[in-house]
């Protein structure tokens, strides 16, 4: 699969990444090359193979339903870019 500039722009938008206009063609080339490498997988028939999501054949452990966390708002918000009255701030969102 070869990606063009429009593909790169679409993917960058989906991933919310600002990409400089001048770098787009380089990304297109690099990403296309990577996909070329990745597509070597098509050499092997995997029709009968079940997908492996995880290295270990284990099941999810369950936690007791208990409140173990205390309020640490000031501590956590001390590293936040912008807060006001306990809220994290973002540019106004219109719904």
């Amino acid at each position: 699969m070869s990606l063009d500039s429009d593909d790169v722009k679409r993917i960058a938008h989906l991933a919310r990444l600002a990409i400089d206009e001048q770098d787009i063609s380089t990304y297109a080339t690099n990403l296309s090359n990577i996909l070329g490498l990745v597509e070597q997988m098509s050499a092997v028939d995997t029709d009968q193979v079940s997908p492996m999501a995880h290295p270990l054949d284990e099941v999810q452990r369950l936690r007791t339903d208990a409140v173990t966390e205390q309020n640490q708002r000031e501590h956590y918000q001390s590293i936040a870019p912008q807060v006001e009255e306990g809220h994290y701030l973002v540019p106004r969102v219109i719904e």
Binding site: A12, A15, L17
Partner: peptide, 20 residues
């Protein structure tokens, strides 16, 4: 812009490959 400025090009490449 936060993500565009904060991440370097290899990280961006991998994010884009994965997104795709």
């Amino acid at each position: 812009r936060s993500r565009g400025e904060g991440f370097g090009s290899e990280v961006k490449r991998r994010i884009m490959i994965g997104t795709y």
